[in-house]
Write a protein that binds this DNA or RNA. Structure first.
Lengths: 244, 244
DNA sequence: CACCTACATACCGACCGTCGGTTTGTATGA
DNA sequence: TCATACAAACCGACGGTCGGTATGTAGGTG
């Protein structure tokens, strides 16, 4: 960070008192945007201070260290994921397969809706210097998604609908596969931004179709049980990302 | 790092000239042991200097920044992996399935042989503050392992022996699964160190058996094709780790 | 007034990387 | 063989930056 920036509020650098939670969230927002944009190491506490419009003392009144910002950001990030996951679980009815497909469809819907933010996160996570951010967010998402998936699979096994060698292994592997998707997604976004949205949609859809087929096999289901191929959704998603 | 250490070579702190490669390797070794033991952020350049017995100027003659050490370490680390992978590829004969099983067996043999070092690496990679190390090493290993796996699978598909939805996806997912194994391995090592080697061996073998079954499915093979269950090997490995 | 909390400012120590200079090896040529 | 010249290895003090602390102050509340 070397942005020689001089925010000169004409006359009043008056401090303005805020409620602790409010101030905390305010600082966290400022920090998040900076970290996501420039990377962990390239953003200094001072940068966060100016962005948030607070002094060092004020900052250290609410946080104990730079790393605290990380925890705050990760919690906020995974909190959103948690909300969605829980809503989906509550809404899903029917057999284990139906529930799983509902879960996947909702996740997709959420991703389409997020659009721009999604790309933002992906770019951020793949940016050099953001390994720590990326790692922690991944770990937190795992912590949330694993039990949910485990539960769904476990119910499926009990029903006799699924047949897996090991529930934890399959759940973990599915999640790992979805993490690995980030690179493919980024490359598709790249293609889309270069104008070839059709090609990007195709590639993304192919990937998702293959993932669905792999999940079928992992869960011991007949081919075509898991539904992930929704070209229209992916096209919408890519368009949302490009027009952001 | 606060290890107040005073290595007092009785009389002669004479600097001794070394060949560039030798000196580089020397520094790299010192840095690696320190980083692995204490974590990336907790080791300063000064620590590396004292450990390697060189001055700051000398250091920056061979390296341009602290991060250069990372690259050096990662290259050294993955160089070993590369050697093994290449040896395996050269040695493997027969059909695609045989070649793959040979590949897996050799990897296992290598792990048994490494023993203590393996545990060292696992602990290091799971230690907080080592996210960057861990991430880069994982990425490098991926870069080496992916084309090898892709090649093996691709040959298998050509032979009609394998049947996969997408070669890259399956290769990536298998590797992701094996990365995910680290946590399970660490927990097994924990159990083994607490004395219950039998239990640890069982758990590890169960995991590997499940992984083999999953691979069978991913590759479109009849169950029992991929061979990973070798309790004796795992017992040896755990014993080697415990007695280190 | 007493007191607590939100916030500000001055300051500290640690650390990374630079720079001018010194030592040591090695090629060259008479 | 030995002097000369050049290159490469090496040194250690210093500057600037950054995370974190110590100390002070304003405003609200009882």
């Amino acid at each position: 960070m070397n942005t020689t920036e001089q925010k000169q509020e004409s006359s009043a650098p008056k401090r303005q008192r805020m409620a602790p939670d409010e101030r905390r969230a305010h600082i966290l927002n400022a920090a998040q945007s900076l970290f996501f944009a420039h990377g962990w190491d390239n953003v200094t506490i001072a940068d966060v201070l100016t962005q948030a419009g607070i002094s060092k003392g004020g900052f250290y009144h609410h946080f104990t260290a730079k790393e605290d910002l990380l925890d705050g950001i990760v919690q906020h990030f995974t909190g959103e994921a948690l909300k969605t996951a829980q809503a989906v679980r509550a809404a899903a009815k029917g057999g284990a397969l139906d529930r799983f497909n509902a879960f996947l469809a909702e996740t997709n819907r959420w991703k389409v809706q997020q659009g721009a933010q999604l790309k933002f996160f992906i770019d951020m996570m793949l940016r050099p210097g953001n390994e720590m951010l990326s790692h922690r967010i991944t770990a937190s998402v795992d912590a949330i998604a694993l039990p949910v998936l485990h539960d769904i699979i476990s119910h499926g096994v009990d029903e006799g609908a699924f047949d897996v060698p090991d529930i934890n292994l399959v759940a973990g592997t599915i999640i790992a596969m979805s993490h690995d998707r980030r690179k493919a997604l980024q490359s598709a976004v790249q293609t889309a931004q270069e104008g070839d949205i059709a090609e990007a949609t195709t590639r993304l859809n192919d990937r998702m179709t293959a993932e669905a087929a792999l999940m079928d096999r992992m869960l011991g289901l007949p081919q075509g049980s898991i539904l992930l191929s929704k070209p229209s959704d992916y096209r919408l998603m890519l368009e949302a990302i490009v027009h952001a």
